[in-house]
């Protein structure tokens, strides 16, 4: 049972890597985070079909929790400011407004949210397309209050 859950988690990563490589080859504009979600959905569906009823809840809990952790690791490689700063230092670049300004940081995030279909642009203004990530952001705010932050 443990091995099947771990194997399924490995399958999510392999499918995601495959999707991303194919999409890069096709020169498509895509959100790798969304494709990780698609990869997880595929493995979840396969799991529902092949894992026995008695083990299914355990299997899905472990698989989805591990993938959620992996999502954060992947996201960190994509979005973390600290990693970006470390890479700039590694490349011998000075941390200046030219190579890491607030405007460029916001531009990158707006593009990413657009690719994730959370916002859309009309003329020069941005609007919400989906309430999904916004809802999660309010959950985070609520949890901060519970932790007295």
């Amino acid at each position: 049972m443990i091995l099947i859950a771990l194997f399924a988690f490995g399958a999510v990563i392999c499918i995601h890597v495959l999707f991303v490589r194919l999409l890069i080859k096709a020169k498509a504009s895509f959100s790798p985070q969304i494709w990780l979600l698609y990869s997880l959905c595929i493995v979840n569906v396969i799991s529902v079909v092949i894992v026995s009823r008695s083990d299914l809840l355990y299997h899905l809990l472990v698989l989805n929790a591990l993938t959620y952790s992996y999502f954060h690791l992947f996201n960190m490689s994509d979005t973390a400011r600290r990693i970006k700063l470390l890479i700039l230092i590694h490349r011998g670049k000075n941390i200046t407004n030219d190579n890491y300004s607030i405007e460029s940081m916001i531009e990158v995030r707006l593009q990413r949210l657009h690719k994730m279909r959370q916002i859309y642009q009309d003329a020069d203004s941005y609007y919400l397309r989906s309430y999904f990530l916004l809802g999660i952001s309010f959950l985070f705010e609520g949890w901060k209050k519970i932790l007295a932050r």
Binding site: M105, R109, L113, I119, S125, Y126, L128, L133, L134, F140
Partner: peptide, 17 residues
């Protein structure tokens, strides 16, 4: 930051941000 951007856009949902 991405959450903050979404909340700013939500606050200005009528006129857009």
């Amino acid at each position: 930051p991405s959450f903050k951007i979404l909340q700013i856009i939500y606050e200005q949902r009528r006129s857009g941000a």
